[in-house]
Amino acid sequence: MNIFRLTGDLSHLAAIIILLLKIWKTRSCAGISGKSQILFALVFTTRYLDLLTSFISLYNTSMKFIYIGCAYATVYMIYAKFKATYDGNHDTFRVEFLVVPIGGLAFLVNHDFSPLEILWTFSIYLESVAILPQLFMISKTGEAETITTHYLFFLGLYRALYLMNWIWRFYFEGFFDMIAIVAGVVQTILYCDFFYLYVTKVLKGKKLSLPA
């Protein structure tokens, strides 16, 4: 464990909690893409199946349960509890165009052709594009609530910190995982446009609205 991975995990946890609290406190999921949240729940489910097979540490296990629990709670609140506030007309990204090719890619490019490894690879690839429905929805509505932009900021920051963690681990431990690194770079690049708007607008107290 290093400072980049720890702050990355805490940033990820902060994002997940911010979203959960936003929906719970405002009793509304307006502006939130339910499709992205379904993809994140799928990412955690396919990645954390090793909860059943191996124990790494109390931190590792507890964080996995928290991520999975929060992801499903968020999906439940969007599609069941506060369904009336779900903006389905703007959440129209065709996720099947993501899931199917990524499923195929996970079979072709992986470290080991075993079920757990292929599912892990699928989850790494899927996570890199899972935010697309949310970014697409914001481009369609032309704006985002400020709390939603904080959620996106911490979510984007977490994988950027993981990139630094991988540099650290390569230098100090000789560890690297090319699949995770390439997917992590793609994932972080997808946030660049948002990061620019966040820094130039939201941090200056303005509302995030498009076109910029």
Binding site: I56, H111, Y162, D177
Partner: peptide
């Protein structure tokens, strides 16, 4: 390659 084949990252 993963250390001792385990995935220790979240």
């Amino acid at each position: 390659p993963q250390p001792e084949g385990k995935k220790d990252e979240l």
